[in-house]
Structure formats: structure tokens, C-alpha cells
């Protein structure tokens, strides 16, 4: 198990390296640089000084090496080109907290509510709870998040005045953005869970459990849930990522000072170091959530646990 995780972390490092490298060369090959994006008309000498300061006059490969050297020797992602004196890693740490809080709460709500909805829909298949859940699910998948955000803002802030329109700080500020962000995960998880629960309900071991005299509620709790939750767990990794991309829209619509807004701005301003740093950060989050999902798999399904530990045992025997 430990060996398995170590191996996975090694793979993660490799993936990160590749992604960051590709991003580096791509962002530098996009036409324009931090100066052309602003309309300042500077003398050539000033421009040359500016490039020299950030090493942008050096060959591309040298800049690439410089980036890794800085990361490994000083543990730093460098200084923002657009906002001098602002370190990329400090910037990320400062604003990612807000995005993370939004994202994690909405994934948590989406996952748990979606799973409960899915189970209810499957148990009451072709009855009204099923239709209600499926209607919500279709709405959640088809309505774009920006439409939802606008509608919510109109009803809950302009008409009813329950919540503030935009801004950040109190719990009341969080309600609407989270409501917008978790509807789509609820829909996705509910649909996956419904089909997987239906599948499990048709399995022979459910009959076995019922033949023991276990009540319907306990059959669902002890036998159905664990066997049907795996497909939903698989989605957890990608949905963490999609929540982050989704938050770009939500953050700008609700004027939340999260990382998403700054990411878009950094790309538009060709802030090379900032883009690279944030990309590294998102990539790390994504891969880490995939690893987390794999570990969850092992916890939930004993058959997967055995495969991993057998591997470890064979290695140990080999070493002896």
C-alpha cells in the first residue's frame, strides 16, 4: 500500500514536470508579451531594460532552465512580471484559500446531496421522487452556471433581498455562489448514483440480504451504498477540477477575489510567471485529487485492496 502510494507520487511528479514544460513553451510562443498587452508606448531602451530585468531577452531554453533552477534552489515560482515585487507563490497562497473554500464546499454538498438523490431516485424508480430528481438533474446539467448565477442574483438579491449581490466576507456572501456551483455536481452524481444503485439492486447478494430478514433501509445502508458508490467516487477527481474551472465564471459574476479571476487576468496580460505558477498549482490539485480517489477506492472495495497489497508482497519477497 505504502509502496503503491509512493509510486503514484513519483508518477505525479513526472506528470507535473511534463505539464509545466508544455505550458512554459506554449505561453512563450503566444504572440505578445507583458509589455504589448498594455498600451504603453515605451522607448526601445526602456523595453530592453525591462526584458533584461526578467530575463526575457535570453534564449527560451535558458529561461526554461532558469525557471526550474529557481524552483529547486529557492523554492520560488518567481516574481510577477506585471506586478513587480509580488511573488507568485505568495499570491497563490493568499487567494487560493477563497477559491478552495468555495470549491470544496460545493463539491462536498454536490457529492453528498447528489448521492442521496440518486439512491432515492433508484429506490422509487418510475415514481414521483424519481421524476423529481431526474428533472432536477437535467436542469442542473443543461442550465449554464452563468445563467443560473444571473437568475439567482435577480431573485434572491434584487427581488427578495435575502443575500448580497456580490462581494466576499460573510457567510451570506457564500450562499448564492455555492448554490450555483453545486447544482451541476448534484445533477451529475445523482444520475450516476441512480444507475449504479439500480444495477446493485438487481444483484443476487441483495436477495441474500433480504432473505436474512434485513429491512429495506438496512439493505440500502449496509449493502447497496458501498457497492454502488464507486462510480460516483471516480467522478470526484474530475469534478474537483471542474469546480475550479467553474469558479472562474462564478468568481467574476459575484466579484469574489478568488484565484480564478486572477488566472484569467494573468493570461490576458501575458504574465508568464503567474500563468506558469497557477497552472502548476491547478495541475497539482487535480493529480492529488485523482490519487485521493484511488486511495478511496482501496478503502471501499476490498478486492482492490488485495490487488495493491499483493503487489507489495511480491516486491517484498523479491527483495528477500
Amino acid at each position: 500500500m505504502l509502496i503503491y502510494i509512493l509510486k503514484r507520487i513519483l508518477y505525479m511528479a513526472m506528470v507535473l514536470f511534463i505539464v509545466v514544460s508544455i505550458t512554459f513553451f506554449m505561453i512563450h510562443n503566444v504572440p505578445g508579451d507583458p509589455l504589448t498587452s498594455s498600451v504603453m508606448n515605451l522607448p526601445d531602451q526602456v523595453k530592453a531594460n525591462y526584458y533584461a530585468r526578467y530575463g526575457l531577452d535570453k534564449p527560451l531554453f535558458e529561461q526554461y532552465l532558469r525557471f526550474w533552477k529557481l524552483l529547486f534552489t529557492e523554492g520560488s515560482l518567481g516574481e510577477s512580471i506585471k506586478y513587480p515585487g509580488r511573488l507568485v507563490e505568495e499570491f497563490i497562497l493568499k487567494y487560493s484559500g477563497i477559491s478552495a473554500r468555495l470549491g470544496l464546499i460545493s463539491v462536498a454538498i454536490g457529492f453528498s446531496v447528489g448521492i442521496v438523490f440518486g439512491i432515492v431516485a433508484a429506490i422509487f424508480k418510475n415514481k414521483w421522487p424519481d421524476y423529481a430528481v431526474m428533472l432536477t438533474a437535467i436542469a442542473g446539467i443543461t442550465i449554464p452556471v452563468f445563467v443560473l448565477a444571473a437568475v439567482f442574483q435577480y431573485f434572491f438579491t434584487v427581488k427578495l433581498q435575502w443575500f448580497p449581490t456580490t462581494g466576499w466576507g460573510t457567510v451570506r456572501h457564500m450562499v448564492l455562489p455555492i448554490a450555483c456551483m453545486c447544482l451541476s455536481p448534484i445533477a451529475t452524481y445523482a444520475r450516476y448514483m441512480r444507475s449504479s444503485v439500480l444495477d446493485v439492486l438487481g444483484q443476487d447478494y441483495i436477495l441474500t440480504a433480504e432473505s436474512k430478514g434485513v429491512s429495506s433501509f438496512n439493505v440500502v445502508r449496509r449493502h447497496v451504498f458501498r457497492n454502488s458508490v464507486l462510480p460516483a467516487i471516480t467522478l470526484l477527481g474530475p469534478s474537483v477540477a471542474s469546480v475550479f474551472t467553474g469558479s472562474f465564471v462564478i468568481e467574476s459574476m459575484f466579484a469574489i477575489p478568488g484565484l480564478g479571476t486572477y488566472f484569467i487576468r494573468a493570461i490576458n496580460e501575458r504574465d508568464f510567471t503567474m500563468v506558469l505558477g497557477m497552472n502548476l498549482f491547478y495541475c497539482l490539485l487535480y493529480i492529488a485529487s485523482l490519487l485521493l480517489v484511488d486511495i478511496l477506492y482501496v478503502v471501499i472495495d476490498p478486492r482492490i485492496r488485495l490487488a495493491a497489497s499483493k503487489d507489495g508482497r511480491r516486491k517484498k519477497a523479491h527483495a528477500e
Binding site: 443476487d204 447478494y205 441474500t208 432473505s211 436474512k212 449496509r222 449493502h223 476490498p302
Partner: peptide, 17 residues
Amino acid sequence: ISMIFQDPMTSLNPTMN
């Protein structure tokens, strides 16, 4: 009344010991 089922490969819950 209790029951022994036909197929032992599928009649036991795979995630419960």
C-alpha cells in the same frame, strides 16, 4: 424460512467480509 441460492459467486456481498 431461509434460503440457499443458486450461484455462490454472485450471492455474497463482495464488499463485506
